Every structure is written in structure tokens, then in C-alpha cells.
Simulated assay, not measured.
Amino acid sequence: MNLVERLKKDKKGFTLIEMIVVIVIIGILLAILIPGIVRYIDKAKEKQVMVNARSAYLDIQSLALEEYGKQGATIDTVKGKIKRDWIGGDTTDLNSGTLEGIPTSATVKGIELSDKARVTAMTYTEGSKTIVMENGTWKE
């Protein structure tokens, strides 16, 4: 018996019905998994905004303490430096372009410092999400 005749007799493989059933099962599994994956991605993005806000806080705190540690610095000179050099005006809005690792679309507003150059309040906004820090408490 030659090879062609043997192949014709051995009709092993999947039928069209079996293939359709497998495709339907895969479709059902994807329909179940995709919404969960999308929710997981959304939660991760929300967490990233909180991480960025805390990173901005640490950067601002570091800049303020660094300036306060200079010879002859007072809290008023530190606040003036923040407004003049870091913010660029008389407002308390910080351009995030000066903060390392923070998206340029983010803004930091309402920076308040204690008498020892500790950041006591700030508002971080990235996209439609706003994070507020007041007296060491973070709120969304």
C-alpha cells in the first residue's frame, strides 16, 4: 500500500463541529477574563497616580529641607525660593516639569510649609484624579 492510500484511509483529525466547539469555548473564556483584566489595569493606573503624588511630595520636601539647611536660611526665604524658583511666580502652583519622575501633565498646588520647612499640605492633580495631602493625611 502506498503512502497516498494510507493517508486516505487514516482520516484522523478534528471535524468542523469540534473546531467550532473549541472556538466557542475560547470565546466564552475570553468574555469572562477581559473585564477582569481591564479592571486590574484601571486599578493599577489609579495606584500609579498615588505613587506619583507621594513622589512629588518627597521631591518638594527634599527641595525645601535642602534650602532650609543652607547657612542663614529662614522659613520665609525657603517659601520665597519655592515661589520664585520652583514655581515661578506668586502662586503655590508647581510645574511638575521641575520634579523628577512626575508626568509633565501633573500639577501640584497649595504647597504649605511648617516652621521647620516640612510640607504640611499640597494638592496633586494628574488627569482627572486629584490627591490632597493635609497634615500628613492623604485623601483622594
Rank of each mutant, 00 (worst) to 15 (best):
D42L: 15
A44L: 15
A44T: 12
A44N: 14
K45V: 15
K45I: 14
E46N: 10
K47T: 15
Q48C: 08
Q48W: 07
Q48L: 14
M50S: 14
V51Y: 05
V51N: 08
A53T: 08
A53Y: 04
S55R: 14
A56M: 11
L58Q: 14
L58S: 14
D59A: 14
I60W: 00
I60D: 00
I60C: 01
S62H: 15
S62T: 15
S62P: 07
A64R: 00
E66Y: 11
E66F: 09
E66H: 09
Y68V: 03
G69D: 01
K70H: 05
Q71K: 08
G72C: 06
G72V: 09
G72H: 05
T74Y: 06
I75Y: 07
I75P: 07
D76M: 10
D76F: 08
T77S: 12
T77K: 09
V78T: 00
V78C: 01
K79S: 10
K81H: 13
K81Q: 10
I82Q: 03
I82N: 03
K83N: 14
K83W: 08
R84K: 11
R84N: 14
R84P: 06
D85I: 06
D85F: 07
I87Y: 04
G88R: 04
G89L: 07
D90E: 15
D90L: 13
T91Y: 07
T92A: 07
D93L: 11
D93R: 11
D93Y: 06
L94A: 04
N95F: 09
N95P: 08
N95G: 08
S96F: 12
S96R: 03
G97D: 03
G97F: 06
E100F: 13
G101E: 07
P103N: 10
T104G: 08
T104R: 12
S105G: 14
S105L: 13
A106L: 09
A106R: 05
V108I: 03
V108W: 00
K109Q: 09
K109I: 06
K109P: 06
G110K: 09
G110H: 13
E112H: 07
E112W: 05
E112G: 03
S114K: 00
S114Q: 01
K116F: 01
A117P: 04
A117D: 01
R118W: 09
R118V: 13
V119Y: 02
T120V: 15
T120Y: 10
A121E: 06
